[in-house]
Design a protein around this nucleic acid. Structure first.
Lengths: 212, 212, 212, 212
DNA sequence: GATGAATGAGTCTTCATTCAT
DNA sequence: GATGAATGAAGACTCATTCAT
């Protein structure tokens, strides 16, 4: 990423209050995604992004103090979208059989990723170290905690001994497989096949007795 | 990766014939790994690599025509080592129960990755798009073919319908989980716990009746 | 010229719209001429040019995408100046006796070249293959066409059979002699002696009966 | 020419006495011509030349201390060949009418240049400043002196007043036109047309009364 | 005499970032 | 708030030349 951040500053320079400003931020984020998708993370220059956004490079830096902060923003948004796609189905972890919940969650996850397939593919292959690692872990942890609670509540039917580790591994595996799928299984990601297989895999890993 | 390859040239510039030359190549590859591990893929410069190797930048370019070719070489070596770690156990896919074979292979895979944990972590997070993609797919395919043969030979005990897809998914998942583990589960990667869990997951995904 | 153009890009990167930009372009071209005159084409580096121009290397590349494009620009300007020096006298080819026209044109040509003698000398000796060859040929052709028309209109007094070839040869010879003169006859180039001799030579080559 | 000579050394490092050594020198010169013809002066590297010659780079530097000395050698040879082609006809300057002598010399000159057309073209366009300038001037002067003597002996039929300048100009023009022809008139250079026109031009420039 | 691996100063070029207008 | 010309540190790569074997 060339001469990127020396000194870390990654918090957006300002929370834009004007409508105009908010538009600009949105436009810049969209432009960043386009540039990254099209040119790859290494070749998406801030000038290119500003050009795509239709604003000057000065304006870009008015809202985002560094290139890193721009990356953070879109990665954060990607993660947030993943989490937001999962949360509506989280209640199934307690309200439905585990295999039903797992299937629903796998489909939700694969669905969001499919929507931004090219971006995810780029990010996962070229820049999965970018984006605030802590935020990523926090979100992963949040999901893992939900899963852990579900497993604890069903201790009898659950096979693995270490529930915390199993919960974490299941979440991380789901993310890894779905993201890998953005490169290796584009069609199965889109048509739900991958989600089905992923759900099978995780369910059978978790349960003593697989569902019929 | 800055001003990297415009054209293509990634084949090593020459097959060194002298002993001295071979040493230099080895030293350069080692230095590349060190630089990548220490500074990350984006900040490992050719000058830095040459310096670590204790040779001049000219010598580096005598053996590797581009920075890309250097990357290719170490990634290729990484992949080769993974494959070579697995192959000695491949016969188990036909000679032993599937869960035994899976466990052995999972341990072998995690073992190699653990040996170069920091490098794998860097590569997977920052540069998994580098290295000859085709070579990577070829190696993955080679493993998937072995798995597929094993599944076909045991069709009765195997659960998934699409054996080819299942074989491919199992291999890709194993790679993804083990590599992800280089960042998220360093200790479990080293002590075999991750391999055990991974083996459980894959075995239960593949078999109708999980082993006792 | 070291690691010069791999690809092609030689069109100026942008048509500067601001006054400031235009100034910078002019300053850069001037600096390029100075550097080439002073250090020779092979040793005039882009950094040296930027330094002479008093701008940063980044600014240089903001206006000229490659070193080649900078060379193209000054060579093109040199050629354009030559053509523009000749055109005001072109009408003599029809309005005056041929020896008068030839003399006027020879003086005009030698005059422009004398004005940039050092640069022309360097260019002709070290880099006459640089600059868009086609443009050079086009300009030469344009002049040759004018000469050819004049010869055709005076067919009776003209000696050579192949008018087209004669016209082309006369133009090319004039250019070659005048440019060679920038090295071998600096004083005669400046004082008009060379132009006189050149005119004599061409006139007597062209006419059946030399003027009195 | 990149990092060429800092401190001038251009005399061949040794006058090879062995037959083997002489062969090597000849082979190196031939290889240099090939490399320059094929890749141009700027991209003909010493390593490339050594490779073409089939000797090691060390051997090349054993016979020629710098790249410059190699260039000097082939340019010197080129010039020598030109002079040697002209000398056998020099006696015509006194023994035959001037237009006959001029014609014979023009053909001889164009003939030699045609034989190494590609090399001359490259040299004239890219490197006519290379080769020992003094040697070049000496040779040109030698010819000019012969011409001057002839003109002095025929003072009555000769038109220009300044015989010394005329003689020099005639020689320089002949060289310039013939060399320019290597690029612009390849076919006319080969078939003698250019030599004929050149002879006409010079003869008519020199004589009061052109021949019938 | 010959070899060729090694050297390293020197080039072109990129791109995140600043700041005067 | 916006603009975009300007900055310059940094990086990939070349090639004439040396010297230990």
């Amino acid at each position: 990423m060339g001469a990127m951040p020396r000194g870390a500053r990654t918090a957006p320079r300002r929370a834009p209050r004007q409508k105009r400003g908010e538009d600009t931020v949105a436009v810049l984020l969209r432009a960043t995604e386009i540039a990254f998708t099209k040119h790859g993370f290494a070749h998406a220059t801030t000038n290119r992004i500003a050009e795509i956004a239709g604003v000057s490079i000065g304006t870009l830096y008015h809202y985002f103090p560094t290139k890193e902060s721009l990356v953070q923003a879109i990665v954060h948004r990607m993660w947030t979208e993943e989490l937001e796609a999962l949360l509506p189905h989280a209640h199934l972890l307690t309200d439905a059989p585990l295999h039903v919940a797992t299937r629903a969650l796998a489909h939700a996850l694969c669905g969001t990723i499919a929507k931004r397939r090219e971006l995810v593919k780029r990010w996962y292959a070229e820049a999965s170290h970018l984006g605030d690692l802590q935020t990523g872990l926090d979100m992963s942890d949040a999901m893992a905690r939900l899963v852990h609670d579900a497993l604890a509540a069903r201790r009898d039917e659950v096979r693995p001994r270490d529930l915390a580790f199993a919960a974490d591994l299941v979440v991380k595996t789901a993310l890894a497989v779905a993201r890998t799928g953005s490169r290796d299984y584009p069609s199965q990601l889109a048509d739900g096949t991958l989600a089905d297989e992923l759900a099978d895999m995780l369910t059978r890993y978790l349960l003593k007795q697989p569902p019929a």
